[in-house]
Structures are given as structure tokens and as C-alpha cells.
Design a protein around this nucleic acid. Sequence first.
DNA 1: TTGGAATGGACAA
DNA 2: TGTCCCTTCCAAT
Length: 351
Amino acid sequence: MPEGHTVHRLARTFDTLFAGQGLRVSSPQGRFADGAGVLDGRRLVASEAWGKQLFLGFAPADAPADAAAGLPADVSDAQVRGVSSASDTLWLRTHLGLYGAWTFAGAPDAPEVAHAIGAPRRRIGERDSVPTSAPPSSDVWEVPEPRGQVRVRLLGVHAVADLTGPTACEVITTDEKRVVEARLGPDPIRDDGDADAFVAAVGRSRVTIGQQLMDQAVVAGVGNIYRAEVLFRAGVDPLRPGRDVPAATVRAIWDDLVVLMRDGADHGAIVTTRPADRGAGTVAEGGAEPVPAPGRGQTRQNTDGSPDAVPSDQAFYVYHRDGLPCRVCGSPVLVKELAGRNLFWCGVCQT
DNA sequence: TTGGAATGGACAA
DNA sequence: TGTCCCTTCCAAT
């Protein structure tokens, strides 16, 4: 379940596992058989994320191999290095939507991917799980069977990646990729993220700031969690029209997104609470933290498993905390359905 | 065994 | 605004 940070993490993972390799591409489920046939045998020469979109660049199978590990930062670099020209590169564009996921498994000698590979098999963009591959003693890696509805399988030298449940999965040209990117707003995780463009877009519309943050043409990569959390941290009422939010505040929201989302990409989990506001989870005094409502499971996150990770029930100020006391002021966190999505906020702290 | 819910988005009206 | 699609997991029957 990806917001932009997950997709950037995925891009890094593909780089680590498959950079420069010729890949076997298939569609176990069958729904991407044509596209898989086009890409099969091509070599992965780029791995990019923009917002929630993942672009994997494939050079023709007969293009000269690139000895150096790591992928060029973009196609123009690839051209300079003679790896692949923009015109003969094909891109696999995928978007995970609400419940798509990439699952990785690797041979014992595969590179570690932020604890996301090897036994146990782990799924990035969703849940962990499931046994894996070969006994460590075996010197031939036994590739695991696809599990579930696998739209695309990429098989490299020592690792395999399976895609399930994407909302988008298609092969496009470099020109078509540019068209997709032109529709996207700036991405706070990318170095080319344009803060001015974000501030300007928000300021010229009376659409609420809460809705604008979910609009990928305004800012790419923000989802329901970052939307709720960044507005809480800024003390801004999500229902305020964008043009009524001071430009300096909008700028501060961007700056906060840069920090939060890059941290999310590095660690695999969204954590927005400041340490002082965590504790048992609520205002300093006044009794025990209420137990979260039953049936409201923990928000699943694909962390890097580090032992000092913030527990998921302490990671957020307002997301999925409706009815619970605000961590700062103690008043109940509010929830309201807006444009088909749940919006969470504190009616006291956010004005 | 069934049915919501989930961190999305495209498209129609 | 509403409807539909994609897939999995877990709580409720």
C-alpha cells in the first residue's frame, strides 16, 4: 500500500537486484502476456520513481552490456554511457493503486535489499510472509512458484520480483513516459521536486488544501496518511481553501513533506510523530491511553525491520485515530469522508 | 464462508 | 459526485 516513499524504495530495490541484467519477463496470471513478451530478454537499464509511479527502463537485448553496477540516473545518462538510447528504451510503467504489491525472493547470494529479500520472502508495498526458495546448501537457486494473481514476474540472475494487483501495468515509450510525467506535480522525494510549483498550485485554487494534497497533479506521492499527518503538523484545517492558506505555510508544508517522505523512503515506514508526543500515545496526564477500537487493525507498513522502529500505533498523530484523544490537546480526533477517502484531523489543533 | 476495508485512480455524467 | 477496477487479509458470520 504505497504512498510515494514506498515506490522510491521499490526503485532502489530494482536497482540493487537487477541493474544491468537481462531479465526473463512473464505474466503467470496471463493478463500481461503481450507486454511481457515485448520485454522478455531485455536488459534493465533504469529504475525511476515519480510520485506513486514506478518506471523500469529496458534496453534491447542486444545492447552492449554495462559492466558497472548501478543504473544511470536517467535516460540521458544512459545515452551518454552508450547503454541505451531514449528511442530504443521501453518502459514498464506500474502503479500499485490501493493494494498492489511487489514481492521479492532471492538466491542466497542475492544482495541484501533493506531486509526485503532472502528468506523469509518479503513483499514490499504490503505484507511480509511466506516461505521461500532453496535450502542454503543447494548451489542452484530454486525459483519459487508465483503466489496469487501475479501479473508480471521479472526473473534475473539471483532474484525474482512478482507484481500483484496493480492499478496500472503497461509498456510505454520514452515519449509516452514524458507525457505521463507531465501530468504529475512535483515529487518531494525527488531532487528535482519544485517547491515553487507546489506553492503556486495550492495558492491559485479554492479547492481545500486537504483535497489538493491528494491531487497528484499538485504534489506527487502524497497519499492519505501523509496528507492527514502533514496538515496536523502544520496546524492547518484540511477544509481550508488552498488560496486562504498563507504561502509561507504552504511552503512549510512542502518542506515538511520533503523530510517526512525521504525518511519514509529510507526506513520503509511512515513516522510523523515527534518523540515527545509519542510516549503512551497521548496527552501527558489524564489516565491511560485508550485501547484502539477493536477491528481497527494496525496500519501495515513494510519497515526495514530495525529494532528501534517506532511501533505503528505510535507513528501517527491523527491517521486512523478517530475518536482517540489528540496526542497534543486531548480532544477527540475527527474523521470525515471526503471525496471517497477518510480524512482525519484535530478540530482544535488545526485551524 | 462471506464481506468489509485498504496508504488509488480513471472515467462518466 | 458516483461507479468501477485491481487483490489480499482478517473479522465477523
